[in-house]
């Protein structure tokens, strides 16, 4: 079922609960790491795997909700909150900040497993998107400064002639740059290049743009 490239982090001040959760999750095949405090979790190096964070609301150093609010969304895996007594305002607040679920102790096995699966699934998608973007940025970084200048003009939908006039170079030069950019960015078509530019937040210089935005 589950494989070893997924990991669940459990943060709970109660050792019994940590043991219980890790026992249960391990019985479902997940790799589990437990932490007594939020600071402990933040401080320790963690394996770079698709992950889920099970966070007790009541923690000795900082409330789980506070911890969630302090971290940027990218800095932690999707969170499943666990609390001894849930209340609606904290639930709403946690969900708004992107929590996967808000579970009340004692937690039912199915609810816990479903939440963990959901969370790890989300993390997987997120990690994939991030690696794609990293690849694009890597490719983008290989462009020469001149190609950096040409790219916005191309994705803005300017004709070669117009782009040449804009930069004060020949149309042939523009044509050459454009080809090189397509190569380096591994774009098979102009629309793909435009989508890549969009993900890279390349500024569009003119409103007249080819293709859909």
């Amino acid at each position: 079922m589950s494989n070893g490239d997924e990991i669940v982090f459990v943060v709970d001040d109660d050792a019994r609960v940590r043991l219980g959760f890790s026992e249960l999750l391990e019985s479902w095949g997940w790799r589990v790491e437990t932490f007594a405090t939020a600071a402990d979790y933040a401080a320790r190096a963690r394996p770079d795997l698709a992950a889920c964070l099970i966070l007790d609301v009541r923690l000795p150093d900082i409330s789980g909700l506070e911890f969630q609010a302090q971290q940027s969304a990218d800095a932690h895996p999707p969170i499943v909150f666990v609390t001894g007594h849930g209340d609606i305002p904290s639930t709403v607040r946690a969900m708004r900040l992107g929590a996967v679920d808000f579970l009340t102790k004692p937690v039912g096995e199915s609810a816990l497993v479903a939440a963990v699966r959901d969370a790890i699934g989300r993390d997987r998608l997120r990690r994939q998107a991030r690696s794609e973007r990293d690849e694009l940025e890597r490719r983008f970084a290989t462009l020469t400064p001149r190609e950096h200048d040409v790219l916005p003009l191309v994705v803005s939908g300017l004709l070669n002639k117009q782009a040449a006039a804009e930069l004060g170079v020949s149309q042939v030069t523009i044509e050459m740059h454009r080809r090189r950019i397509m190569q380096k960015m591994q774009a098979s078509s102009l629309p793909e290049l435009v989508r890549m530019a969009e993900r890279l937040h390349v500024p569009v210089r003119h409103s007249r743009r080819s293709g859909h935005s």
């Binding site: 019994r16 609960v17 043991l19 001894g84 937690v107 096995e109």
Partner: peptide, 8 residues
């Protein structure tokens, strides 16, 4: 807390 642990 103990109940949660027991259940798990």
């Amino acid at each position: 807390q103990p109940l949660a642990a027991i259940v798990a």
